[in-house]
Design a protein around this nucleic acid. Sequence first.
DNA 1: TGAGCACCTG
DNA 2: CAGGTGCTCA
Length: 631
Amino acid sequence: MYEEPLSSYHSGSLISHLLRKTIHSKRPALNNAHLYLPPSSVSGAGLVESGSTLAESAQEDRSSMSSKDSLGESSSPGGHASGMSAEPERPLSEHLQAKRARVENIIRGMAGSPSDRSHGEGDGVEGETGRYGTEVYKESKRKRKLPQHQEHSHSTTLTTTSSANISKDEECHKLREQLQSMQRLLRQLQEKFLQMYDHGNSENEEKGEGDFQEDVSEAQLDLSIDSDNKRIGNKERMKADGGYLSTERDQKSLQEMLKCELSRAVSESVDMVFRKLSVTLQNQSPQPQACQSPEYTNVEKRAQQTCAPELSDSEDISKSRLLEFYESTPVPSPEHQTEALSLVVRKPTLNQLGSVSQQVKRPYPLHQAPFQFSYSAPLHDSQILEHLLKYGPHANFGGIPCLPPSLDRSSPDSMDLPWESIAMRSKVSSGHLGQHHRPGALGQVTVDSLCLPHVKMECGDLQSMAERSTFMSLNIQEGLTPNHLKKAKLMFFYTRYPSSNVLKTFFPDVKFNRCITSQLIKWFSNFREFYYIQMEKFARQAIVDGVSDVKDLAVTRDSELFRALNMHYNKANDFQVPDRFLEVAEITLHEFYNAISLNKDTDPSWKKAIYKVICKLDSDVPEEFKSPSYL
DNA sequence: TGAGCACCTG
DNA sequence: CAGGTGCTCA
């Protein structure tokens, strides 16, 4: 679809990536399916022999697998995953107004968003964080050390407000290009918006049943996560009211409204920026009179607030400079902030329940945030717009796991990683994982892990140290968090015997050392222990119960055995356990059953043979888990 | 010798 | 889940 030809910052790939994400409403249930081995064929020796073949055939078409459990995705305990809480009734007009306001907020936010960012920008930050890696575990030191780079760069920007030597034409040209690309993106946003809206409508009218599509359109429609957490989506409410058709007209009008707002905002913001540019270029004064003009719209006011000192800076008004220009914007007064911060992340979702006053709380100057968000991946307006495209200005950026230095930025993958991810929140501060976490919803949440510069700007807005540490924890970790544990447990559904390399690959946000590695290995060891204990227990129980044939021992999602395992590794039950795990569990159960039946358990090392079998049955862990922010 | 594992224990 | 222990293996 849409590609950004002028883009020097991957917006094209980002967009297509997002569109892909959107299109694939469901993650493939098992993209790493292994050859299924019927229990009858599982004699220990045979399996061991075919071990390597097994691994190779892991890529085989899954159709070769017998699907005893047809429950598959649909067996997901559906309802709970919607994450929608009931909302007190609210008049439709009010709701529409709220949406309208949100759209305006987006646009205002866009007006103040960084135009671009050079790839070099992150270097300093990364270098800084990279050095922390050393053996020592003193987090506090780390935190104190980190902000330096930012402080430096920002104060530099703030203080050098003179002598722009570069050709104004060139400058103008660059800005124009950026603005044009921004304009295109805004249009894209608009189209996407309406497209999704329409799509969502038809989907829902056809199906009448909430599914991922609805989730997507809902997420995109509902441009903000209301701070009071009371709202539910338009459609949700309509559904509650007993149908869509009756409210079709309202939706249409809302749609029209959105269209108008977006069109207006696009032209306004572009015009405004051009105006601002010309004003700034004319009088290199940091305080153009235009700023005071009362007739400016809110959008313009926002931009005027940001227009102050910086454009005159520098030998080279590069993209990164422009970004700093925005980032170093002086903290606006509260009454302005309510408008200006709309684009910006205020805080992790959990505490987004907070009041509007949170928006104006900024205990630290932007550039003096008491802790650092290093973002190795450069962030761009396109990314911001993409995020808005999906989530709106208030969407949760809380899970932003800035790419750890360990991820080589030169690697093409490092750019992609955040997009593959799910917002992660440390259980330390968030309690439980959101209910939204289910495979089908992966695509929906991916962009939450954007590393937007605004996050850095807003870190001062976080209210509690707990939140800050949560944010910190999203950078490179020197310890394992409860979220890592949870992730490890989910990984166990795929691999019972992960290699160290796998662990390193799938915990990229963890700074590995001997201790961490052994801890992770220990975790999996404990998982296996529980797993095998359950297997033995249920196998013995089956024998006691008089089960005479292994074929009568099936492991389905209804099985007690599965419930026990699921309770252990997936307590919140918000993860769709892969079918393959059920198969492996069944094989394991059969192994135990057979061994016990044959009195092999008299041999003290009788389990070893079983272990040998089971360790061959590991699957590849899905790519999503590679994201540092998964969960 | 160290890594990785299972097992036992708290 | 982590600590300790003993075993195996490279």
